[in-house]
């Protein structure tokens, strides 16, 4: 069975030790996804598997067999994704290294909120989730930014969320 990456079927590697991250970057030259810590601590390697945000550094590529992977290249395939545009407009990055992970994570995060999923800072677990800046901070805490572009990142995400709600 193949791994479908941004719509293209790819054979899983023969060596099960290869992470999804290394498969994409080193063997498929899909370098949009970044490698930061390689141990689950930074979020730079975030991609979507079957629409859910996960860390590609801790996912063995063989575990993605039969699944659909979307990377930043996939999100931006038909021109800039609304989140990419918003990151540009709101200074959502400085060096840009964390940005692909931030944008993949944010796109899934907005879906999670739309599906009513709570976060640790959601006070009323019974009520539908509402996106506040505090909520964005908590829900995006798995994506570190060494440049400290967080305020711009939150502005960009809030802008897209407000557009979607309008």
């Amino acid at each position: 069975m193949a791994i479908t990456i941004n719509g293209t079927p790819v054979d899983p590697p023969a060596d099960p030790r290869v992470s999804l991250l290394d498969l994409m970057r080193d063997r498929l030259h899909l370098t949009g996804t970044k490698v930061g810590c390689n141990q689950g601590a930074c979020g730079a390697c975030t991609v979507l598997i079957d629409g859910q945000r996960v860390l590609s550094c801790l996912t063995l590529a063989v575990q993605a067999e039969g699944r659909t992977v979307t990377t930043i290249e996939g999100l931006g395939a038909d021109g800039l994704h609304p989140l990419q545009q918003a990151f540009l407009e709101h200074d959502g990055f400085q060096c840009g290294y964390c940005t692909p992970g931030q944008i993949c994570a944010a796109s899934a995060m907005l879906e999670e909120v739309a599906a009513g999923m709570p976060s640790y800072v959601t006070r009323d677990l019974a009520a539908p989730a509402r996106l506040t800046r505090e909520e964005v901070r908590e829900r995006m805490s798995g994506n570190l930014c060494r440049c400290g572009a967080h305020n711009g990142i939150i502005d960009a995400i809030m802008a897209v969320a407000e557009e979607q709600a309008a």
Binding site: T46, V54, L55, M109, S119, Y120, L125, R139, S141, G142
Partner: peptide, 18 residues
Amino acid sequence: PMLSRAILAGASAQIRNM
């Protein structure tokens, strides 16, 4: 609710999905 909150207090959304 203590169980939902405990899980949500752990790791990150990406790790909790895995």
